[in-house]
Structure formats: structure tokens, C-alpha cells
Design a protein around this nucleic acid. Structure first.
Lengths: 143, 143
DNA sequence: AAAGATTGACTAATCAATCTTG
DNA sequence: CAAGATTGATTAGTCAATCTTT
């Protein structure tokens, strides 16, 4: 229980802290930056599905998220040549700029916050490992 | 950046997974359980402020959260004898029962999920330590 | 004036129903 | 019929304005 409490608590405070920092730096919100980073990661092959999976939200939420990215001029849907059911999502030049600026501000804030932590790598490995176990278990339960 | 991504990703998947487990066990949602646990932790001295601080939400959100707890019969506001501006929040018998059932289900799920992790303590310590540093820094920046 | 809380307008999530394409 | 996506109704968060008590 202690671990769970510490995890939730720290994730929340770090998220809020970084979001405030981004705002102060004139960058997009951390939520928007996180979404834009996913779109960029898939380089022209990002569908609503990818956003759903990577962000841990529902398809409906992911669809509305893309609506907002389009509305704000950060991304655009384009027809998927391989599957008429889905669109592919690309960053606009404005979106690419917001990504670059946001990532720079985020890296600065993280470095300032965690640059001196020697155990960062091992804790990261732990988180990645237990997350993988969790997904294996969830897939198993779903059967 | 890797650490931040892993942290957010794992916190999200663990939260969603546990929430599903609680639902399956017939318990309250993880969000509700988290709130009820805070109310219980302060044992008769819980105000809206305590919920705000412990849950990392705004006062407005905390106030509405108490509205919902009251609406669902889990908690009640009572006049604060020491300060007329605030109320003290107590669990009802129903709320205490939801707490006990929910905690049991949560502990089961967590044990099943993380019972075999040897590094749990050290990772917990890390999270608690960096969270404390973050709060010190935030307080400093606010000045 | 400052602190605690509440409320209203807005934003973003959920679920379920629906539509289209494979 | 499955899979991908969208939409509408509901739920919960934010911020800002307001009210009461200290």
C-alpha cells in the first residue's frame, strides 16, 4: 500500500509541477505535449488507437483529443491509404514547433528536478518491468 | 525523460488495472476509495484542505468531492467547533464499510500484482524522497 | 485583508450507442 | 460480424468570482 500511495502521490505532484513550469516557459500544457509527443513518435502512422494505447485513455477520449489538436492547429487527420476506417494523424508545422519548444522546456525542468538522482536508471527499469508484467496480466485476464 | 514517461505510464496502467479489480470485487471506485482513505486518515479532523493537499486537486474539486461523498452516503460534514469557516468531514457507517471492503480488495490486488517484487521498499523510499524535494522546491518557487 | 469554502462556466474524461469499412 | 472511429449524455476536474469567518 505504501508503494501505491507514494507512486500516485509523486506522479501527481511531479505532473502538476512540470505543467506549471511549462506554462511559465510559454509552452503548451503537459497534457498537450504528451499527446503531441505520441503523434510524433509514430511518424505518420499514428491513428486514434495509438493515442488510446500510449496515453491509457479510451477511444472516445482519444478521438476528441485529436479534435482538439486539429482545432488548435497542432495536428491534422489525413485519409489512411491502407484502411478506410481510420485516419492518420500528422503534426502541422505549428505542432512540430510546439513539440520542440515543449520538449526543451520539459527536459530543462526534469533535469533541474532530477538531474542529481543517481538511482534514476534503476528506478526507471523497475517501472518499465512491472508495467510490462501488468500488461501481460491484463491481457491474460481479458481472455 | 525516460523516467518521466515510465512513471506516468506505469501509474496510469496500475491505477486503471486496480480500478477494474475493485469494480470486479464489488467495491467502490479507486477514486472514491482514495478519498475515503484520506477522510479516515485524519480521524475527525479532515477538512476540505486535507483532501486538496493529499489528493493533489484544487479546493473547488475537493469541495465537490465532499458533495459527492455526502450524496452517496459515505461521509457527512459537521460544524468545526474551532473555526466557523470550515466543516469537519466524517465517514458514515456506510462509508466505513466501503473503506474496509475497498482496502481489503486493494490490498489483495496489490499483493497479487507486486507481492514478489524485492525492490519495492527501495523504490518507495526513492519516490517519497524525491516527492519531498519537489514540495520543498515548489514552496521555494512560490515565494 | 487573509483563509476556508462554495458555486458557476468551461474543459476533458468515461460509457454506450451508432455509423462505416474490412 | 469485427474493428475503427465518432458522438451524446454524464461525471469530475480547472479557474475565477463570491461569501463568510478570522
Amino acid at each position: 500500500m505504501d508503494f501505491f500511495d507514494a507512486l500516485v502521490r509523486y506522479e501527481t505532484s511531479l505532473w502538476n509541477h512540470l505543467d506549471r513550469r511549462l506554462g511559465h516557459a510559454g509552452a503548451v500544457s503537459l497534457a498537450t505535449l504528451t499527446a503531441v509527443r505520441v503523434v510524433d513518435r509514430y511518424r505518420g502512422t499514428c491513428r486514434v488507437q495509438e493515442l488510446r494505447a500510449d496515453l491509457g485513455i479510451t477511444v472516445g477520449a482519444a478521438s476528441k483529443l485529436v479534435d482538439r489538436l486539429e482545432r488548435d492547429g497542432l495536428a491534422l487527420r489525413r485519409a489512411n491509404p491502407d484502411d478506410g476506417r481510420s485516419s492518420l494523424i500528422d503534426l502541422t508545422p505549428t505542432g512540430a514547433e510546439a513539440l520542440a519548444d515543449g520538449v526543451e522546456a520539459l527536459e530543462d525542468a526534469l533535469d533541474h528536478q532530477l538531474g542529481n538522482e543517481p538511482d534514476l536508471m534503476s528506478v526507471t527499469d523497475f517501472l518499465v518491468r512491472v508495467d510490462a508484467k501488468l500488461h501481460a496480466l491484463t491481457a491474460e485476464v481479458a481472455r
